[in-house]
């Protein structure tokens, strides 16, 4: 990544979270990974002054308590955090979810592949992109 801020992973499935952790490690991403399990926890994380704001947010859509879309609806209205790039990582190919996510200005929309190696490829691409692209904050 362009800077060394943490990556915020919003994901309720433990194995999916492990997949991300493992893939990031495999492609040698040095940014720390902060893991929360739903939208509410993610909002709490973002508003917690003791925690550094993330460089990017990896967001699952289907989660208990507060799902990804609900989370986006709140975050994108909050001037303090609305410009943090959010990349949706989801199982859903659903057109509605896709449209709604992009209407809420997500930076990317990735469908989780069933094959782990393909997932690693996706993480590689995200890493490569955000190493080249400037970020809103240094």
């Amino acid at each position: 990544m362009k800077n060394h801020k943490p990556i915020l992973l919003v994901e309720d499935d433990r194995v999916d979270a492990m997949t991300v952790t493992r893939a990031l490690k495999e492609i040698n991403v040095t940014n720390t990974l902060a893991h929360v399990e739903n939208g509410e926890e993610a909002l709490a994380y973002l508003s917690d002054d003791t925690k550094e704001n993330p460089c990017i947010i990896l967001l699952d859509l289907n989660m208990p308590r507060m799902n990804g879309i609900e989370f986006l609806n709140i975050v994108k209205k909050d001037d303090a955090v609305k410009n943090i790039p959010v990349i949706v990582l989801t199982t859903s190919k659903d057109e509605g979810d896709r449209l709604e996510s992009f209407n809420l200005s997500v930076a990317g929309y990735m469908v989780k592949p069933v094959d782990y190696l393909q997932f690693v490829e996706i993480m590689k691409t995200i890493q490569a992109y955000w190493s080249l692209s400037e970020m809103p904050f240094d």
């Binding site: 492990m18 997949t19 989780k112 069933v114 190696l117």
Partner: peptide
């Protein structure tokens, strides 16, 4: 799909 993916990943 989600648990299936987990099985796949874990097997990997």
């Amino acid at each position: 799909k989600a648990p299936l993916r987990a099985i796949g990943s874990l097997a990997d």
